[in-house]
């Protein structure tokens, strides 16, 4: 297979990653930025899971039913493949990145909740969630301070 196909997953992941980053840094709307952030975080998940996939592999669950299906899958490969990479005749995908990404997804939703909560408070304090307008008001705040305390 060509270099492109064997690394297709990474390329797709990078595009999504960059889309997410672009949204985060180009958008002025706080909610939209949180959405971009979620997209960006999800690209990390796609990346890890791509690393974990094994050709002809099955989910890392060693139950009988899963194993039968796994044997069928593994049997489709060239001879010797299973003997070399399998465990008890079944090839499994790598469980470790799955675990890590479970954690990362939960962290992602936690961040999303806190970020949106802050955005809601920003809206209540400033009447807007657009970064430009918030900055303008903040500058007035700072200037107002100056005036208030000037001798």
């Amino acid at each position: 297979m060509s270099e492109f196909l064997t690394h297709f997953n990474y390329i797709a992941v990078v595009i999504i990653m960059m889309t997410g980053l672009f949204i985060v840094f180009s958008s002025g709307n706080l909610i939209k930025r949180m959405i971009g952030l979620a997209l960006f975080q999800s690209s990390a998940a796609l990346f890890y899971i791509s690393l974990a996939k094994v050709t002809g592999g099955t989910a890392p669950i060693t139950l009988e039913a899963a194993s039968e299906a796994g044997r069928a899958l593994a049997a489709e490969q060239v001879p010797g493949y299973v003997a070399q990479h399998g465990i008890d005749g079944v090839v499994y995908s790598n469980p470790l990145p799955h675990v890590l990404i479970l954690t990362a997804i939960v962290v992602g939703v936690a961040t999303l909740a806190v970020g949106l909560a802050i955005a809601v408070r920003v809206r209540e304090a400033y009447g807007t969630v657009e970064a430009d307008e918030i900055n303008a008001v903040s500058r007035i705040d700072a200037a107002g301070l100056q005036a208030e305390h000037a001798p």
Binding site: V114, G115, I118, V122, Y126, A131, S138, D141, A142
Partner: peptide, 11 residues
């Protein structure tokens, strides 16, 4: 101003 600051920090 703590609020937008916290938001930027979060991002």
């Amino acid at each position: 101003r703590a609020l937008p600051a916290a938001f930027n920090y979060l991002i």
